[in-house]
Write a protein that binds this DNA or RNA. Structure first.
Length: 605
RNA sequence: GGGGCUGUAGCUCAGCCGGAUAGAGCGACGGUUUCCUAAACCGUAGGUCGUGGGUUCGAGUCCCGCCAGCCCCGCCA
């Protein structure tokens, strides 16, 4: 209903200008034009939209707000375009203007969506790439619960932005460079030298164990430490043997990451920290040329504006260590510069989004400030940190295993699927249903992974969230299984003989040329379905996937009320075809919406 | 010490540019099935929106103080 809302907004502005010409002209001249404050109705009984714009005008106009609302309503009633859209505007409360769309307009909107694969969501014409930096695990370490949110939230945001029509560059900024490689390579060279000369000679197997061994030796053995430090220098100097060892470690990690991404159906292009290695020196040189670089205590710093430390002095962002080496701030700056730079020397992005935990907020604030002051962010471009909170256990503390270790992402996904399977088998037994193993495996996998994703996405990402298998896999409430079940119910109607008219956009005659609705549950469903486009636009703008989750949950609830109280297959004539049309649009909306969250749906479960 | 985030029903959480009587789910209690999967639906109870001020026609939302929890703060990412 974005289009209708936009039309109404224009009509309201015109009505306000006609009702109060002098004041409106003055406000316009002062660059503070009257705002009708059009918003979706806060309650169904208020209609479809409400305009609150009369209230703030009471003081400047010196009139009671209800009188102002009345004057606007009179002007609206004189506008044929408005009357074509809405019923008589109602004035309520202190001066709210309640607007109800004409039923035939609502039905026409539904009709239009039945043949539209985009379900009313306009495609953007902006072809400037959006760059999304997410997931970003470290080489030679396992993906753990800390990577869960970045990966899932980043993917969902990427899907929404792609659906809007933006070219999206999904980048995995893996930790594939840095001092930890000194000890890893040294350990590899000493433990498995044959790996460096013979292809596939060694299966590194459990990289985590390998990392632990290397770390243990590094901590205990001074000679090893010295060798490891030399190894870092060799690697950064481009020594072929060191590079070979580095490549082996990266390949192994990459395979393990990819297994997780495949399982979660996440597409991601790798471009690790090492990619920016050739650009680091230039970053520091440019900062110096721009007059931003200050050498303090031997380290190259840019002092931040508006951020002061303990003693009240500005806080530095260190971009070159006193030993001449670079650090993560340097890499992040090089990445920003490259990403905004026009091709072929850069990505030419118009919007760069980082999906990382909230603990890095001040780091990014500093890096962004320096990039801005260095002039690397083009006018009109957007640079955003999309922070998220911690994953906590039932105890409200950071999620750990019973033994106190970090939870491996693989184990977490396994457990979700196992629990989903156990629950499914228990219910099949109870209901005396019989399904083959392939069905059970497919449903358990889909439900288990959907539950993990949905639980993560459905809470506002800024706050910490409490991880609970029990809650996320519950069949009732705001959970993936509840939403999936709504889709299954619609599929059931189709199986039992309801012709839903095929997929959206199919050439087959859209169900019922004339839609007619009579029941309040039908109208409630119509209104809910038509909100989809606005929700997508909101997620695009605010990067909050939980808004889409809330919407899909409410849509499922409204659908279930309709399903419960309004017969579909047992109706006949236009009522039957109209209800089938609502079923189809509900299924299409739920499938598309869940798809944008990275969650596939089921026909039966 | 400085900065950030959080604090809403017993529990988990929504709450959009400041708008009408603060919402949902779970849990609790009560009801609904010759009918498209009851994995559902209907109803009841449950609130000092951490706290004290301020701004405003109007504050959970904006501003200031305070309290509590978590996170960050020069060469790790």
């Amino acid at each position: 209903m974005l289009r209708l809302a936009h039309a109404l907004d224009g009509q309201l502005r015109a009505a306000m200008a006609r009702a109060f010409p002098e004041a409106a002209a003055q406000a316009q001249a002062a660059d503070r034009p009257f705002d009708p404050q059009l918003a979706p109705a806060s309650k169904p009984e208020f209609g479809d939209f409400q305009a609150n714009g009369a209230l703030p005008l009471a003081k400047p106009l010196g009139q009671p707000p209800r009188a102002i609302a009345t004057a606007i309503a009179e002007q609206l009633a004189a506008d044929p375009a408005f009357l074509a859209l809405c019923l008589e505007p109602q004035i309520a409360g202190p001066g709210f203007l309640n607007l109800s769309l004409r039923p035939e307009r609502l039905a026409a909107e539904v009709q239009a969506r039945l043949g539209d694969p985009r379900l009313g969501v306009p495609a953007t014409e902006d072809t400037t790439p959006v760059l999304l930096d997410f997931s970003s695990p470290n080489i030679a370490k396992e993906m753990h619960v800390g990577h869960l949110r970045s990966t899932i939230i980043g993917d969902a945001l990427a899907r929404v932005l792609e659906f809007r029509g933006h070219p999206v560059l999904r980048l995995n900024h893996v930790g594939d460079w840095g001092t930890q490689f000194g000890m890893l390579i040294t350990h590899l060279k000493q433990e498995a030298p044959e790996a460096l000369t013979t292809a596939d000679a060694v299966d590194l197997g459990d990289l985590v164990a390998f990392y632990r061994q290397a770390k243990a030796r590094f901590d205990a053995d001074e000679a090893f430490q010295a060798t490891a430090r030399e190894e870092v220098v060799k690697l950064q100097g481009g020594d072929p043997v060191s590079l070979k060892a580095w490549g082996l470690l990266c390949d192994q990690s990459r395979r393990e990451f990819q297994a997780i991404y495949d399982r979660l159906d996440i597409r991601l292009g790798e471009r690790g920290e090492s990619f920016y290695n050739p650009y680091l020196q230039a970053v520091v040189d440019d900062l110096r040329a721009a007059g931003l670089l200050v050498v303090d205590d031997g380290a190259g710093c840019v002092f931040l504006e508006g951020v002061s430390g303990k003693d009240g002095k500005p806080l530095p962002l260190i971009v070159q260590k006193s030993d001449g080496g670079f650090n993560y701030a340097t890499t992040d700056l090089a990445a920003i510069r490259y990403r905004f730079a026009p091709p072929p020397a850069g990505d030419g992005a118009g919007r760069v989004i980082y999906v990382t935990d909230a603990g890095q907020a001040s780091h990014f604030a500093g890096v962004f400030q320096v990039a801005r002051r260095a002039g690397w962010i083009p006018a009109g471009a957007r640079l955003e940190h999309v922070p998220f909170g911690l994953v906590q256990g039932d105890d409200g503390k950071k999620l750990k295993t019973r033994s106190g270790d970090t939870v491996r992402l693989k184990d977490l996904l396994d457990e979700a699927v196992e629990r989903a399977e156990a629950d499914l088998r228990r219910r099949l037994k109870e209901e005396e249903r019989h399904e083959d193993d392939a069905f059970i495996a497919h449903v358990a996998t889909t439900v288990g992974l959907a539950a993990v994703k949905y639980a993560d996405l459905s809470t506002n990402r800024i706050t910490n969230y409490q991880f609970s298998f029990e809650r996320m896999l519950a069949l009732t409430g705001n959970t993936a299984p509840y939403l999936l079940y709504a889709v299954v119910r619609i599929a059931g109607i189709a199986r039992k003989g309801g012709d839903l008219g095929g997929a959206a956009g199919a050439t087959g005659a859209p169900a019922g040329g004339d839609l007619s609705f009579s029941e309040p549950q039908e109208w409630a469903l119509v209104r809910e379905l038509l909100k989809f486009d606005a929700v997508i636009a909101e997620v695009d703008e605010e990067l909050l996937p939980n808004r889409l989750c809330s919407y899909l949950f409410e849509l499922s609830q409204v659908f279930n009320r309709f399903y419960d109280q309004v017969p579909v297959l047992r109706a006949d004539g236009p009522a039957r075809s109209s209800r089938l049309a609502l079923c189809r649009l509900s299924a299409d909306t739920l499938k598309l919406g869940l798809g944008l969250l990275g969650i596939p749906t089921l026909e039966r479960m």
